[in-house]
Write a protein that binds this DNA or RNA. Structure first.
Lengths: 213, 213
DNA sequence: TCGTAAGTTTACCAAATGGTAAAAAAGCGG
DNA sequence: CCGCTTTTTTACCATTTGGTAAACTTACGA
């Protein structure tokens, strides 16, 4: 009776197990981000991973488990720049650094960005719990920090949540809507021009007015 | 030999034809925007439209034709606010009006927004020609108008294309990422607070500095 | 009201797809 | 080198899905 490692999710995983699970998740990221959950097939993932379909199902219980594993795993990396915002730092520079980090992620991890975008677009059917339990508390916390900065007069008044939405939207746009951006921009330095545009935009938004009391 | 209306795409369409094609496109918008192209099935569309699947294929050649028809048809409505920008109007107010119209569309036509987002996310496989032939010229034109305004000193210097990206990203975010927005905002007046946030943000970005020469 | 064209339904089909059973092969500790 | 476990492959399967053929029904102009 061969024991599927999937059945006994405990015990130290073997080297082969570690390597193949990684291969599968890499392949799945590629395929899911390009075609969405339902547009992706196990055959595609298997081909991309260089494994057979049944072999993939030896490591994961099914398509859905691969997807959920990916999403949960990426959530951490995805939110790292937000966690890195330092409540004790310079408010304006902390937020501008956050903007740039998010923009860099759009360039360096476009597949991850599209994977999340796809999931949210469909109503976050497989990620709603995580949004509630992981993202929401972090956002609440950050919003409180920003509100504190504003009350201290170190930042122009702004709705913290809408500010975050605007940062996410504008930075992730370059990954999620890349097909459109590519059609509309001839220049090769899209990232750099975007960086200076966003820096200007958010700096203007957030810099407190000095002449007013 | 029954003539499929699909075969002879000419001649004046009957009332029934008009009504049913509309029903099908309405249903398809609902289903495609919720599940993406590959996630949507003809059976779902048929059920939503209150017609049988073969009946649907009597009016459209196939799933793809329904999708392409939808996209092309919506493109016009979608770009209307951009076309409405008046080169002879007040630059700042023209653009702020554009922002508000786009935000209103996110609230009033979220399905259309998600349909486009889905298509672009997957690399615009079925809409690339339209992006090139319809969107690009319009954007080039608008960019020229904005550049003119900037040169005339009536607008703060900004990259016109990145400005448009930022407007699209921030406004459509409320439709495309609604599932996330809903988790993170408790208030009922999301639209109104978003409106004032975006007004402030883009007004600050675009208002020319007066004290500099 | 009758005949023809338009519209609809029933009954299918082939391919794709997520998944399984079980045998075969490869690893590996002793 | 042996025996046992882990890993991989081969051969399937049931369901879903886009699509078709052809019979049947309805609309409508003469």
């Amino acid at each position: 009776m061969p024991q599927a490692p999937v059945a006994q999710a405990s015990r130290k995983p073997s080297r082969i197990q570690l390597r193949n699970r990684k291969r599968i998740l890499d392949a799945a990221l590629e395929v899911f981000s390009a075609h969405g959950y339902r547009g992706a097939t196990l055959d595609q993932i298997a081909a991309e991973a260089g494994l057979s379909k049944p072999n993939i199902l030896y490591y994961f219980e099914g398509k859905q488990e691969i997807h959920v594993t990916l999403l949960n795993q990426l959530m951490h990396a995805w939110l790292a720049p937000l966690r890195a915002v330092d409540p004790d730092g310079n408010p304006l520079e902390e937020l501008m650094t956050y903007v740039q980090r998010k923009l860099d992620m759009s360039r360096d991890l476009p597949r991850e960005s599209r994977l999340f975008a796809n999931e949210i677009l469909q109503g976050a059917p497989r990620m709603a719990p995580h949004l509630e339990s992981v993202l929401k508390p972090l956002v609440d916390e950050t919003a409180a920090v920003i509100d504190g900065w504003i009350e201290a007069g170190r930042l122009a008044p702004v709705d913290p949540r809408h500010l975050l939405f605007s940062i996410w939207a504008t930075t992730q746009h370059y990954a999620d809507f890349e097909a459109q951006v590519r059609v509309l921009t001839s220049a090769q330095d899209v990232h750099d021009t975007a960086a200076s545009h966003l820096d200007r935009m958010f700096r203007r938004l957030l810099t407190p007015d000095r002449d007013v009391i």
